[in-house]
Simulated scan of single mutants.
Amino acid sequence: MQIGTMETIEVLGTVAFAISGSFAAMQRRLDPFGVLIIAFVTSIGGGTVRDMLLGDTPVAWMRDVNYCLLILATSVATIFFKTHIKKFKITLFLFDSLGLGLFTMLGIQKGINFGLSPGICIALGTITGCFGGVIRDTLLNTIPLIFRKEIYATACILGGSLYFGLKHYKLGDDMANIAVIAFIFVLRIVVVKYRLTLPKFGY
């Protein structure tokens, strides 16, 4: 995968999760500083955990302050335009789903760059896509989506499996990346629209 493509995916994912985090914080009526913090942890949480597991330190956002500035600018813009967006819940869902697909693909590619097996790459993609949301929901005193019956981490796993299936049949890198990101995004929309869930265990 070309470096430029990876950077594009990371920028788009960062923006998507910054918007997602900002809307989640505004739903809880946090002040501007709180919105910024939630946007920040949503955007960099998964990548930070991934890089620490890989021993790739300092982690990405510490090496490039532009990502911090991007999160700041996105958060401010989201706060500014909030009066023009009536359906916070739908907006949060769409950007969270888009960020999930983008960051899952980014995590998979980073695992490939480190020469790891497909299974571990898929796990890294799932961590990159999900853990920012886990930290966000924990700080907002909400049970993280990944721990509920809603199909969330499963979408990352299925998307990662699709990627390696497509690569097995020699599909080009860019096409495979787009296909996986679109698959995860559309799958999240379908499962929420039709209320498809995983089995729920407990008493």
Rank of each mutant, 00 (worst) to 15 (best):
Q2A: 11
Q2W: 10
G4C: 01
M6I: 15
E7A: 08
V11F: 13
L12W: 04
T14L: 08
F17V: 07
S20I: 03
S20P: 00
S20L: 00
G21L: 02
G21Y: 07
S22E: 05
S22M: 03
Q27F: 01
R28W: 00
R28H: 08
L30R: 08
D31V: 00
F33A: 07
V35H: 02
V35Q: 05
L36S: 05
I38Q: 04
I38L: 13
A39K: 04
F40Q: 04
V41H: 01
S43N: 11
I44A: 12
G45A: 07
G46W: 02
R50M: 07
R50K: 13
M52C: 05
L54S: 04
G55S: 06
T57Y: 03
A60C: 03
W61A: 08
Y67E: 04
C68A: 14
I71H: 03
S75H: 02
V76A: 15
T78Q: 06
T78M: 07
F80E: 08
F80Q: 04
F81P: 05
T83M: 00
I85Y: 05
K87L: 07
K89D: 15
D96V: 11
S97N: 13
I108D: 05
F114K: 11
G115S: 04
L116M: 13
L116T: 03
S117D: 14
P118V: 13
P118T: 08
I127D: 04
T128I: 12
T128E: 11
G129Q: 09
C130V: 15
G132Q: 06
I135D: 07
D137P: 02
T138F: 06
L139T: 13
T142S: 10
T142Q: 15
I143N: 09
F147S: 10
F147M: 14
E150V: 07
E150A: 09
E150Y: 09
I151P: 05
A153Q: 09
T154R: 11
T154N: 08
A155T: 14
C156W: 10
C156K: 07
C156D: 10
I157Q: 12
L158H: 10
G159A: 14
G160F: 09
Y163A: 10
F164I: 12
F164Y: 14
G165L: 09
G165A: 07
H168Q: 10
Y169A: 01
G172M: 06
D173F: 09
A176K: 01
A176G: 03
N177L: 07
A179V: 14
I181W: 05
A182T: 15
A182I: 15
V186G: 02
L187G: 03
L187H: 01
V191E: 03
V192H: 10
Y194K: 11
Y194R: 12
T197D: 09
P199E: 06
P199M: 12
P199Q: 03
K200M: 14
Y203Q: 06
